[in-house]
Write a protein that binds this DNA or RNA. Structure first.
Length: 478
RNA sequence: CGGGGCGUAGCGCAGCCCGGCUAGCGCGUCUGCUUUGGGAGCAGAAGGUCGGAGGUUCGAAUCCUCUCGCCCCGACCA
């Protein structure tokens, strides 16, 4: 069932695809560009969802569901929005065997239809803010699909809020960016860099887009979540207005923000190694797998081992564990399978351990013998949760060290070009789009984000040599 | 949409250049026995419109024409 996967150093793209398919996260679908999320991949997504959803609810957001179909005319109401999305729209022209009066767009994102609804619902400043999120699938006609990272249909959450003032809208946008950062760092163990998008990279129709950027195992950047300050652009296009306390009509200030199944890709590419997936304990569908080892023709040994396994299971409160009692597979085979699937922790238990009143505890994040320790039987209940926390922390440390080791601060444009070949370049940036384009053409690198936290002082732009205040991250991106 | 590559058993491939017996190999699957502390061994079995259509030929997986699909690399994007 499982072949050896290609090492990351040999062919990263191939490694990525093989890991996903062999770990049964996802599969290709008969429709080009779409994917099937298999139960194991979906279980991971459910954990991502649960953690984000808690944070949204804690900050006053409510879930709702808006339609999949959007009238074509809606999309066309906001000029930049049409411009940005027109090339990737899937359009329904027929329904019930008849040509439609007006084509329906399969939502690529829901600003327009939600904006329309908000214009109906919002009358007064007393109605504000409106804080709604939806978990949905969206469709964008992608020319170059890649499992989880870029598929024609993908799953995500999209938050849409409306506020009385720009200050409040900005506050919301940044609050969500903090939530995304917190989730990425503390749940997914992905060290992300929060920042602002350049003009050319921002969401079509936004005033300002914010992002969290992560470094993947091949040192390329991945945008893992975005939060947009939409200004009054959509409020004006859809007449989302309220009567303020002075009885004057005002346009609302809106925001939108999203994290998609791409986050799964980020987890895979941040932590995975040549054995397969490595999942952060907080999100792993299975945190601990117990592999009993028993000689087949010694029934008494088998019974004793399985009794000990049952005993262990009873003490594992709150741990998501699985007992792999497929004895027709050799222990080595089972070890390999669970390593491929990225289960953070494994207990190996056989007759030899029983006589020593211990088990073998193996950490997925430290492959081979180095990650194995003996744990006394009566310590398992405390050791397992503690070890899961340790693994979670170590994964973040390791990923952070990797990112920092591959983040450079070049002094010249030549050094800059070399830097973006090998990772992130952290440089002064003048903000001139013409030079951004020059960089893209010459190096394939783009501005991933302009840092939220800017150091004092100023300097010269690495590309143009012009005075530059801000520091930006440049990298080749997915 | 441009460039490259590939379609032969569930998966991975060989065979094609130079046409020729019944289309092979590895992994997996199924059955039986022996095994089980890092991807077990032996024996047996099942599994194919060689992507599709047309053509050349006594004869096509192999040569020619057309066509469909997929993957990778670029431009566009969460």
């Amino acid at each position: 069932m499982f072949d050896k996967i290609v090492p990351r150093s040999e062919d990263y793209a191939k490694w990525y695809t093989q890991v996903i398919r062999q770990a049964e996260m996802a599969d290709y679908s008969p429709v080009r560009g779409c994917m099937v999320v298999r139960p194991y991949g979906y279980a991971l997504w459910e954990n991502v969802k649960a953690q984000l959803d808690i944070r949204f609810k804690e900050t006053g957001h409510e879930n709702a569901a808006f339609p999949l179909f959007i009238p074509m005319s809606f999309i066309e109401k906001e000029a930049e929005h049409v411009e940005g999305f027109k090339p990737e729209l899937a359009v329904v022209t027929h329904g019930g065997g008849k040509k439609l009066e007006e084509p329906l767009v399969v939502r690529p994102t829901s600003e327009t239809i939600i904006g329309y609804m908000y214009s109906q619902w919002i009358q007064s400043y007393r109605d504000l803010p409106v804080l709604i999120n939806q978990w949905a699938n969206v469709v964008r006609w992608e020319l170059r699909p890649r499992l989880f990272l870029r598929t024609m249909e993908f799953f995500w959450q999209e938050g849409h809020t409306a506020h009385a003032t720009h200050e409040e809208a900005v506050e919301e946008t940044l609050r969500i960016l903090d939530i995304y950062t917190d989730f990425a760092v503390n749940e997914a163990a992905i060290p992300v860099i929060p920042g602002r998008k350049s003009e050319s990279e921002k969401f079509p129709g936004a005033l300002t887009s914010y992002t969290i950027e992560a470094m993947m195992g091949d040192k390329r950047a991945l945008q893992a979540g975005t939060s947009h300050d939409l200004g009054q652009n959509f409020a004006k296009a859809f007449e989302i207005q309220y009567l303020d306390a002075n009885q004057k009509q005002q346009h609302c200030w809106t925001t939108s923000w999203g994290v998609s199944t791409r986050m799964i890709g980020a987890i895979i590419m941040t932590h995975g190694d040549d054995q397969g997936l490595v999942l952060p304990p907080r999100l792993a569908p299975t945190q601990l797998v117990i592999v009993p080892i028993v000689p087949k023709n010694r029934a008494d040994d088998k019974q004793a081992v399985m009794q000990a396994v049952d005993g262990i299971c009873e003490t594992l409160n709150g741990v998501r564990y699985h007992v792999d009692d497929r004895f027709d597979y050799s222990p080595g085979w089972r070890f390999n399978e669970w390593e491929l699937k990225g289960v953070p922790l494994r207990i190996e238990i056989g007759p030899r351990d029983l006589s020593n009143q211990q088990v073998v505890l193996a950490r997925r994040d430290i492959p081979g013998k180095d990650g194995k320790t003996f744990v006394p039987m009566n310590n398992i209940a405390e050791t397992v949760p503690r070890m899961l926390e340790t693994i979670q922390a170590d994964m973040l440390k390791r990923a952070t060290a990797f990112r920092d080791a591959n983040t450079f601060e070049p002094e010249s444009y030549d050094e800059f070009k070399e830097a973006v070949e090998n990772g992130f370049a952290r440089v002064r940036w003048c903000g001139d789009a013409a030079y951004e384009e020059k960089v893209r053409e010459e190096t394939q690198a783009t501005i991933r984000c302009i840092l939220m936290e800017q150091p004092d002082g100023d300097g010269k732009c690495i590309v143009s040599g012009k005075p530059a205040k801000e520091i930006a991250i440049f990298a080749r991106a997915y």
